[in-house]
Computed example of a mutant assay.
Amino acid sequence: MSTLVIAKKDFEDAVRARTLQVMVAFFVGFTTLLFHYHRSRLGEERTFDILFDGIVGMLGVVVPILGMMVGYRAIVGERESGSLKLLLSLPHSRLELMLGKFLGRSAIIVVTMAVGFALVGVQTILFTDLFSLPAFLFAAGEITLFGIIFVAIAMAFSTAMRSSMKASIGALGLTVLFSFIWDFLYGLVHQFVDPIQIDPETGIGSPDPGPNWLFLLKRFNPRHAFYEPSSYSVKEPIPFYLDPWFGWVIVAFWLAVPLGLAYRRFERSDLS
């Protein structure tokens, strides 16, 4: 019960501080610009997937940053202000405090994504004839999950660190890794493991998709948890970790493991 009380208070504090309003306004404006930009670039092949691929690709970079910003001060901010001791003097355990903060911060992301995607959905219906409810709900759910995962990662640093500076550096570092650097490193590993062979006569490369475990390396980035390689790229027999359901295992890992490790440290630390 304490967990829900803390979550509700944390969410209400975000509303009073106008954090939620600012995030919703930013996200609505940003997604609206993305929608009209990609709509204007549609060629002859007009499908919902083509329209939303570009939108989701950009949001896959922006939303993790929003999640990081929402989560990184959740616990460490209370520690620095001295209110952490007061909170834990009430009938709240450290686990309830951490889970309540996580739920409250995640609710901020959920509401922001819901409002933003609802308006994008309305615009898709009004300005195109491409709307697909199942594909729309999948895209919205996928991006929302990304945001919640990065709230969890940021909160893990917030729980484990003693200063906002260290928490922000750690959370921002992982956000940059997953949003900008991971795909580059994946390409380097792919090239090292299975370099492109150039035909000396034509000068044309013949890229090989490489071993199946390379796709797991790509999927382990939470941004690509639901990535499914094309059937011709996967070597038989198809391993279980490339099945669609395994994306949920990766999501569960990034939600549970960072918070679990941070809680172990938080449980044993003093409150100063």
Rank of each mutant, 00 (worst) to 15 (best):
T3L: 01
A7Y: 08
A7H: 00
F11L: 15
D13Q: 06
R16F: 14
M23D: 03
V28R: 01
V28H: 07
L33V: 15
F35T: 02
H36C: 06
R39F: 11
G43F: 08
E44L: 15
F48C: 05
L59M: 12
I65L: 14
Y72C: 07
R73P: 02
V76F: 07
E78F: 09
E80V: 15
K85N: 15
L86Y: 15
G100E: 09
F102I: 00
L103E: 05
I109C: 00
V115P: 02
G116W: 11
A118D: 00
L119T: 01
L119M: 09
Q123V: 04
L126N: 09
A135N: 11
F138L: 12
A140P: 03
E142A: 04
F146T: 03
F146P: 08
F146K: 05
I149Y: 00
M165F: 13
M165K: 14
K166F: 13
I169R: 11
F184N: 12
L185E: 08
Q197D: 10
I198P: 03
P207E: 10
P209D: 02
F215S: 02
L217M: 14
H224K: 03
Y227V: 02
S231L: 14
S233C: 06
P258T: 03
L261N: 01
F266M: 06
D270L: 00
